[in-house]
Amino acid sequence: MSEYLLLIVSAIFVNNIILARYLGNCPFLGTSNRMDTAIGMAMAVVFVITLSSATTWIVQEYILKPFDLEYLQTIAFILVIASLVQLVEMFLQKSIPGLYRALGIFLPLITTNCAVLGVAVLSVESHMSFIKTLVFAFASSVGYGMALVILTGIRERSATSPIPVHLRGTPLGLITVALLALAFLGFAGMVK
């Protein structure tokens, strides 16, 4: 049990997928201007990463490994994730239109995002079991969502402050992310 707890804490705080591993920077900056957008994005990320990690684990274990094709990992994973997201989108539109509208444009947007692929590859590389993969993927994506919400909160407040013109927008966003990453560095060493 403590093994899983450690895994969760490590994925959320210590090895935060964005602030420690620097994966998925593009939507991180792109969707952190408004809180409602950020929350929509965070939900979509949790949804897609958890689902795709589970699928890619199956592909890895039952297709790539038996045929010694691990070197095709990246291509195969992208292919699978892209199709999966597409399928899920269709399913949601038909069956749960409410969730479909809530996730909206973010679902296709993160189809082949590096954070999504990164979590899938990471869990495969560290030879996790299926359950462990699921927990790791879920925790990692929650960490991503948390970082996104924190950054959005900061950016929303700083938007109304007197900021030098040349720093407004992305430059200040990047500086904020850097400071945030430094702060998260404080968790390093908590979990090995």
Partner: peptide
């Protein structure tokens, strides 16, 4: 095998 696997997927 590689072609078949990726193509198959």
């Amino acid at each position: 095998e590689a072609v078949l696997a990726v193509g198959g997927i």
